[in-house]
Nucleic acid binder design. Structure first.
Lengths: 162, 162
DNA sequence: CTTGAAACAAAAGAGAA
DNA sequence: TTCTCTTTTGTTTCAAG
């Protein structure tokens, strides 16, 4: 199922991705629509799964001391079963907030958030001892977040349009 | 300014970080409060900057073909000025959606989203030619997103509580 | 797409536990 | 204080044109 999206839909998605709690009437104003058609577009986007969720972005820095760590992981074996086992383990650790399978000689990149380095090391040790197929890992500790913003949807779609 | 947060505040933050558009009355029900005190807590959390923003999470995969790429970057020089120059360049590229300064022998990790590999390479070439101090870079192409979820706030706060 | 009406939520205040 | 209850205003949702 393919959904026809016009520039207004893209703009709605773009606005909601930085102001997710904007009222539907204000959103309608911003895209030059009256509330009803705008409401129908939003519902359409939600039902089609283009809007996966709405989330509050919590400022962890103000909430508590913590560390953010990226871990590049290489597995011992590259059989399908090994990937499955590792990925299942990953889902079980709440400290691992993101994980991507990647190419380039290594297998996974994970983003980990814990209270301190010790709890990170404890988690890694546990992973190593739990025969989950972890062969090597490399730790990058985040010292500063330089940038974070949602993708520019119009820019991403331009190549398709012309 | 330090804000006293009780377990109910944490629960509110946790719920909103996965259901950002939940009505305040429903949220009140979930944390066993009536709407007014709950409303005041939310306002308090927003004003204190603990809730930085509300965002719709857009499913890029359903929106358009694209590639997600992680880039590990090493700079030529480690003078403060060099970092400043590079970070300023990073903010100018909308394709770079996240960037972290990291320890571990390299300097930055960036997450890039573009329409295809070619536009990624064009961006890198531009960065290399624009004397922004980029010495070496390593490209990890994402083949699959394994996991993505907001941090478990209660877990992160436990070490502070006991 | 517009109008418009009924249901619902947000915001702020008065006062009780 | 901190919550409950009430009121006003504005928003959401949807039917009908």
């Amino acid at each position: 199922m393919t959904l026809a999206l016009d520039p207004r839909d893209i703009r709605i998605l773009q606005i909601l991705s930085s102001e997710g709690r904007l009222s539907k009437s204000e959103l309608a104003r911003r895209v030059n629509l009256s509330p009803s058609p705008c409401w129908e577009r939003i519902k359409r986007l939600e039902k089609a799964g283009l809007i996966k969720a709405y989330r509050a972005e919590v400022d962890l820095a103000r909430l508590s001391a913590h560390v953010v760590i990226f871990v590049v992981v290489e597995l011992e074996s590259h059989r399908a079963e090994s990937f499955r086992v590792f990925e299942e383990a990953v889902t079980k650790y709440p400290e691992i907030i993101e994980c991507w399978a990647i190419g380039g000689g290594v297998d996974y990149l994970m983003q980990v958030v814990t209270g301190d380095i010790n709890s990170y090391q404890r988690m890694i040790d546990e992973l190593l001892e739990s025969s989950v197929g972890l062969k090597r890992y490399f730790t990058y500790i985040v010292t500063k977040k330089v940038k974070s913003e949602p993708p520019a949807l119009d820019l991403l779609l331009k190549p398709q349009i012309d």
